[in-house]
Design a protein around this nucleic acid. Structure first.
Length: 573
RNA sequence: GCGCCCGUAGCUCAACGGACAGAGCAUCGGCCUUCUAAGCCGAGGGUUGGGGGUUCGAUUCCCUCCGGGCGCGCCA
């Protein structure tokens, strides 16, 4: 079923068609009101179309309103100011809408026409520990994968690991010369990091050693069995390490196709591009130039094979596009990486289009950097890039300290559990609530705050509703109205919650999870107002049923919305 | 040099062509014998970096200047 906004939109579309048959209005006809004073929704099309129709906006609006029938949805539409049409939903309509979706598994959010999409996120370097820099790709990618899947798309989540490259020459030598294999088994990534650093130090002092590293890399890349075996063990250790992190974060992938997965396809990609005249040799390397009239201006060339014959990550990206389209028939490819790679993806996408991938949508969903209080990239006090595991530990520790202070009567086990869910939720939510493309300042205090647009605030709102539903003596699953929304707080809350579908749709369409967090914050804060103003359990029978039903919808809305962001809720905290 | 991003309240951030630019924190003032006060209600606080332009309408689009960040052929 459609959101109230969409229902209004459809009515307006019909009215416009009747009033102006030749017209094809663009975009949404009905949008959320910019100010509660102007009602719930508004239509601004009369202003937008005034020039085209050579008519005054207010006259256009009046003509449309003659054709418009929305009496079952809202009060009489009002033409305001220069030609806005203001719409205020009828409480009865809101009540009926709540009742209709409160029991629906999808809360009345219809699936969209499905596409097959591959979403590429997280993609850590398999030879290094994950650090704070991996949060954004991992958390945003996971939230988008969940949301796109909910919307109805067939989603393939792909972890495109950096599991191939020069670091492995160093690690193979390190494996032989420096590695403590017990330590590797116990804390693999710490030991790999130590070995890697030891090799790098030695390389600086010893040219012969450095040459050995180079030769091991050549052997690996040539497919030598011994080197390949060591590499495979390294990858397995690395995978165990990152799976531990993903498990903790609740992040999942459908496939782990790292760079090495595409090795066997790279030569063919390059020769194919050469044969088609898309790439050509230049100074010993093979390069794609963007110098035809259909290419965007100022796009720098993309190198796809080095003069020594080695391939580059652009080559791998192109092979991956081919693979994803050939194998899964994907028609939408989404890449979640930081903004510094914008030029790279412009080059890769443009090459792919020249190559014939014109029917597929290619989306680079980029994000800004995480900064410290000093406005520089976030670092520990020692100046290191913060380790991701340590960061997750700290999130839980900080959350635990708060839980112990605020809820000393809870059992230690429950305190732990609350701390885990709240701490991890706080880190994720804080990231997701930022406009994706902005840089943001990392702040423990802000993300763990109980007030404002934070995970703890959402989770707390959920707990308060849950507490009411537990005490009401009725199985919440049976609550389905009827509702009366007489109090303004009830009305606002219902209106807010009914915008779930709009928020999810916009999040999916624009790849902006902060659209969803803003929606959830609106619902949670409307609920807090309602909670203070409108007693539920103590109300008379009819009002009680109505309010309980509203509570159920809100609880389910928060739970569903948070789950799409990969954030858990708790019954108590 | 070329290109990308950013500049909004004291601070951290929203608003991606619509009406007087919104939150949280901080500041000030109220609300717990009542569903979890980890909360709620209220107040003050802005020439959206400057200047042009497009538009009925610009924080939003275009140009320019200032300030900050980032990327740019053999790393990923």
């Amino acid at each position: 079923m459609n959101s109230p906004r969409k229902q209004l939109d459809e009515r307006f579309a019909r009215a416009f068609a009747a009033a102006f048959p030749d017209l094809e209005p663009e975009g949404d006809l009905v949008v959320a009101a910019s100010n509660p004073q102007h009602g719930d929704y508004q239509c601004n099309q009369a202003l937008a179309l005034a020039r085209q129709l050579k008519s005054r906006p207010r006259d256009i609006a009046a003509k449309v309103l003659k054709q418009l029938d929305v009496t079952d949805l809202c009060e009489a539409p009002e033409i305001a100011g220069p030609g806005f049409v203001n719409l205020t939903l009828r409480p009865g309509f809101l009540a009926q809408q709540v009742a209709e979706r409160v029991g629906d598994p999808r809360l009345g959010v219809d699936p969209a026409p499905a596409r097959t999409l591959v979403i590429d996120y997280s993609s850590p370097n398999a030879a290094k520990p994950m650090h704070v820099g991996h949060i954004r790709s991992t958390v945003i990618g996971d939230a988008l994968a969940r949301t796109l899947r909910f919307v109805g798309h067939q989603v393939i989540a792909d972890n495109h690991l950096g599991d191939w490259g020069t670091q492995f020459g160093q690690l193979i030598v390190g494996w032989r010369d420096f590695a403590d294999h017990d330590a590797l088994a116990k804390r693999p990534m710490e030991e790999i990091k130590r070995v890697y650093q030891a090799v790098k130090e030695r390389e600086e002092q010893d040219p012969a050693f450095k040459e050995r590293v180079r030769q091991e890399l050549v052997a690996l890349q040539g497919g030598a069995p011994e080197q390949t075996a060591i590499w495979e063990e390294l990858i397995a250790l690395s995978r165990r390490y990152s799976e531990n992190i993903y498990q903790r974060l609740g992040v999942q992938f459908d496939v782990w196709h790292g760079e090495s997965f595409y090795n066997s396809m790279l030569a063919e990609v390059v020769t194919d591009l050469e044969n088609r005249g898309i790439a050509r040799e230049d100074q010993g390397a093979v390069v794609v130039f963007f110098d035809t009239p259909t290419d965007p201006p100022n796009l720098k060339p993309l190198l796809i094979r080095k003069s020594d014959g080695a391939y580059l990550y652009g080559t791998t990206d192109l092979a991956a596009i081919k693979y994803r389209v050939d194998t899964w028939n994907a028609d939408l490819l989404v890449y979640v990486t930081d903004g510094r790679q914008q030029d790279h993806f412009k080059q890769v996408f443009q090459t792919a289009r020249k190559w014939g991938y014109t029917q597929q949508s290619l989306e680079h969903v980029w994000f800004g950097t995480i900064q410290g209080e000093d406005r520089k990239p976030y670092k520990t006090r020692e100046g290191d890039t913060p380790d991701l595991l340590a960061l997750l530990d700290e999130a839980e520790e900080r959350a635990l300290a708060i839980v112990r202070e605020k809820q000393p009567h809870l059992s230690p086990e429950l305190q732990q559990r609350v701390a885990r869910v709240v701490g991890l939720g706080a880190v994720k939510y804080f990231d997701l609530s930022q406009a994706r493309t902005s840089d943001y300042v990392f702040s423990w205090d802000k993300m763990l705050a109980m007030n404002g647009n934070t995970a703890p605030y959402m989770q707390y709102a959920f707990v308060r509703i849950n507490s009411i539903l537990e005490k009401c003596g009725i199985d919440p699953a049976t609550l389905c109205g009827p509702l009366t929304l007489d109090d303004p707080a009830e009305r606002s809350l219902a209106r807010a919650a009914l915008e779930l579908g709009d928020a999810i749709e916009e999040t999916a369409a624009t790849y902006r999870p902060n659209v969803l967090t803003t929606f959830l914050y609106e619902v949670a804060s409307q609920f807090s107002t309602f909670y203070e103003r409108c007693p539920v359990l103590a109300a008379d029978e009819a009002v009680r049923t109505s309010r309980l039903t509203l509570c159920r919808l809100v609880a389910r809305t928060l739970e569903l919305g948070l789950s799409l962001l990969g954030i858990e809720t708790l019954p108590r905290m």
